[in-house]
């Protein structure tokens, strides 16, 4: 009887560990293959990969993904500040007035918004921005990215702010600081690492989002523009189109772009990891 129970215990342990190894092996395979295939393309093209236009299906050269890089940077540049301000304001409101009805409503809404499929956001922005403006634009893409990442930014900021012990607030109030200066001079500086982390995690959301850009940004790949009102391209969008295309050369470019995206993601991830112990994306 005793041995029988011990045997089951052992078997269970081995099985659980075996399945766990199977569970994390896909991501290791993924990282290795994407980096191998992708860096090969980038090394072959060299600096051209970052400064030239994508190839035509039958050209010999890989070309580059300059429009996608510029477009991604431009849309991130527009949407990140807006997302941070909106998310931070909402997070301050709900942490400072946790029992207020409006705070509870905002908290629930953030959860519902996060569950809306991102392709739905793309369709919504298409109707309210692209159709009235009669053109795809980097601006429409940025708005879609903001809507997609706002609930996440809100959650990151409010978890961070909620981690400040109440005694800090009491100390600030006892020397008659106003509520605004308490937030700006005490609470945010106390958790500045957490705030930086929250900003970086929002950046990851914005950089990697594909579906929200499908019907908003346009797919302008014949040149580089930095006008927010002109159609633009983005790295995930280019990967999406090229990897599913029948042309071998486009699939190669998609590998290169994927490696670039993966590398930038990993750089941000390890920076965050360096700042805080546990990361929850």
């Amino acid at each position: 009887m005793y041995n029988w129970r011990k045997l089951i215990d052992k078997l269970f342990t081995y099985m659980v560990i075996a399945v766990s190894i199977v569970a994390i092996s896909p991501v290791i395979h993924l990282i290795i293959t994407v980096l191998l295939n992708g860096t090969m393309v980038i090394v072959k093209t060299g600096i051209n990969f970052f400064i030239s236009l994508p190839p035509t299906p039958f050209s010999k050269d890989f070309g580059g993904i300059a429009p996608a890089i510029v477009g991604s940077l431009l849309m991130t540049f527009i949407s990140l500040p807006i997302t941070i301000v909106l998310g931070l304001f909402a997070a301050i409101l709900t942490t400072e007035f946790p029992k207020n009805t409006i705070s509870i409503v905002i908290d629930t809404i953030a959860k519902s918004l996060a569950s809306i499929p991102t392709i739905a956001v793309s369709m919504i922005v298409y109707t309210i921005i692209v159709v009235p403006m009669r053109s795809f634009s980097a601006l429409a893409g940025s708005i879609a990215l903001t809507i997609v990442s706002l609930p996440y930014a809100y959650t990151y900021f409010s978890t961070t702010l909620r981690s400040v012990p109440f005694i800090y607030r009491e100390a600030a109030f006892s020397i008659a600081m106003s509520r605004w200066s308490t937030v700006l001079k005490i609470l945010i500086p106390v958790v500045r690492r957490g705030i930086v982390t929250a900003i970086l995690m929002t950046l990851v959301r914005i950089l990697g989002e594909t579906a929200a850009l499908l019907f908003t940004a346009g797919r302008f790949r014949n040149g580089v523009t930095i006008s927010p009102l002109a159609p633009a391209d983005a790295i995930p969008l280019l990967i999406f189109d090229f990897v599913l295309s029948p042309y071998e050369i486009w699939r190669q470019v998609a590998w290169g772009a994927s490696a670039l995206l993966l590398l930038s993601y990993m750089v941000i991830f390890f920076t965050v990891k360096f700042l805080v112990k546990e990361v929850k994306l």
Binding site: P26, I239, V243
Partner: peptide, 25 residues
């Protein structure tokens, strides 16, 4: 290390999963 790998997986842009899944998985 293991929980870092799980966290790394969690934030990975889905387009990269899509590339890998369509070509290898």
């Amino acid at each position: 290390i293991v929980s870092s790998i799980v966290e790394l997986m969690g934030g990975l842009p889905t387009i990269i999963y899509a590339v890998w899944a369509s070509q290898y998985l």
